[in-house]
């Protein structure tokens, strides 16, 4: 998951489901150029699949009418686009200033020592993936952890334990 230059082929053709298809058509009208759809189209893909398979890059390029290299460029530049499958529960821990000052390392250490999960890894059972990320804009309630997009503020190891226990 840390190598962001390698795309993964699933061997299956990619296309949007009906809901994403409609959303694409709604959004494309909001911009004067179709290229502006590159970021939204990648988001739609990730919402649908959980990550961005290689086949989706070509699909998006076709659909927009641009080069696959343009879509690839954006997909690899923006770190929130997952180019590899993630765990069923994706955990992001802020590693930046205010969270660092208020003890984010204890949480990272706990995950490493007790769960065997290191930043940049997916657990063997596929249940968790962990990423250390930059400031999440919740510095006043640091340290902060984001799990599957939901924010959890003022975190500590105990709170994290009960949070993890509630995940499937």
């Amino acid at each position: 998951m840390s190598d962001r230059s390698q795309l993964i082929f699933t061997g299956k053709p990619f296309q949007y489901d009906a809901e994403r298809d409609a959303e694409f058509e709604r959004l494309v009208k909001r911009y004067p150029t179709r290229e502006s759809m590159i970021l939204p189209a990648l988001w739609l893909t990730q919402e649908q699949e959980g990550w961005i398979p290689a086949e989706a890059i070509a699909y998006i390029a076709d659909r927009i009418g641009t080069f696959a290299s343009q879509v690839y460029e954006a997909a690899t530049f923006y770190t929130m686009y997952h180019l590899h499958p993630m765990g069923r529960n994706h955990i992001c821990i802020c590693r930046t200033l205010s969270c660092w000052l208020r003890g984010k390392q204890e949480i990272v250490d706990y995950l490493r020592d007790e769960i065997g999960l290191k930043p940049g890894q997916v657990s063997e059972d596929g249940k968790f993936s962990l990423e250390e990320v930059e400031c999440l804009g919740h510095c006043g309630s640091a340290p902060v952890v984001q799990v599957n997009g939901e924010f959890h503020e003022n975190m500590d190891v105990d709170k994290l334990k009960s949070l993890l226990a509630g995940l499937k």
Partner: peptide, 11 residues
């Protein structure tokens, strides 16, 4: 018209 455009993790 107002449209929300989402970034994807780049300060």
């Amino acid at each position: 018209d107002v449209t929300v455009h989402r970034g994807a993790g780049a300060y």
